[in-house]
Design a protein around this nucleic acid. Sequence first.
DNA 1: TTTGTTGTAATATTCTTTGTTACAACTAGA
DNA 2: TCTAGTTGTAACAAAGAATATTACAACAAA
Lengths: 142, 142
Amino acid sequence: MQISSRFTLAVHIFACIDTFKDDYKVTSDFLAGSTNVNPVIIRKILGQLKAAGLVEVARGSGGASIAKPLDEISFLDIYHAVECVEKGELFHFHENPSADCPVGRNIHGVLDDKLIRVQKAMEDELSSITMEDVIQDTRRLI
Amino acid sequence: MQISSRFTLAVHIFACIDTFKDDYKVTSDFLAGSTNVNPVIIRKILGQLKAAGLVEVARGSGGASIAKPLDEISFLDIYHAVECVEKGELFHFHENPSADCPVGRNIHGVLDDKLIRVQKAMEDELSSITMEDVIQDTRRLI
DNA sequence: TTTGTTGTAATATTCTTTGTTACAACTAGA
DNA sequence: TCTAGTTGTAACAAAGAATATTACAACAAA
């Protein structure tokens, strides 16, 4: 399985808010148009980003804005905010290895630290990329 | 979403084959018992590992064996063999960003290389761990 | 008060994973 | 050759997750 598109959606949302902040009120409908994703999904993601302190959303009057300097918003912040992976565990372990088998009994003890190493390598790379990088590349391309 | 349990299952399968190779015929039923997973699922994974040249499976008489030295079987080999992630793309990109929006039009151009960097960091770490490591730790614990 | 928006619930749809049943093809050994 | 046990695979079921959709109350600004 792949990591939920909520992640790329969230990055897209940030890019839109920053790009259009001076010219448009960036609402969930506006973002739904740019991403081609249902506005309710957008609102849910905005809610998660808001809960993580990454954006502010104007209830009633409408519109979203970015709550922090772009270089302080890393991909890892976004990834955690939108909960792409349950309980923070990248690998789905088979649930009930047999306790009667020497291998089944010890497979968690053997594997867990290795899986965490892999996950950490990925998260370290995520934390090295920020929305500042994305916005600079976006401006260059537009 | 998490990475399919086929990955941890495959590692478990290798550990079982190596541990029990001298004392038992390691069949899909045997492995189903150790992992607590349906034997048909086990056979499907064994089929994928066989297609990747990592194991041999005796049709008819039954039983699986490991096809290569343990230190030449990396987690990345296994991960690719069992196709945990479709098309090798770790991140699921939202499908149809709007071509009418400057951001939607360019989001792939901006994001793709960054996502590949993250994926590569993970795969590099996967390739640094081998079944030899797993077997040594398993023997220590048993 | 009107208008447009957010937050959220409820439900539907689609997709993927995993489980299950069934059985033909196969191999070794009696 | 026959038997017993196994693999490979198809077909289908069940469960779970992601995403879409509809609906509407709460809200804020003009």
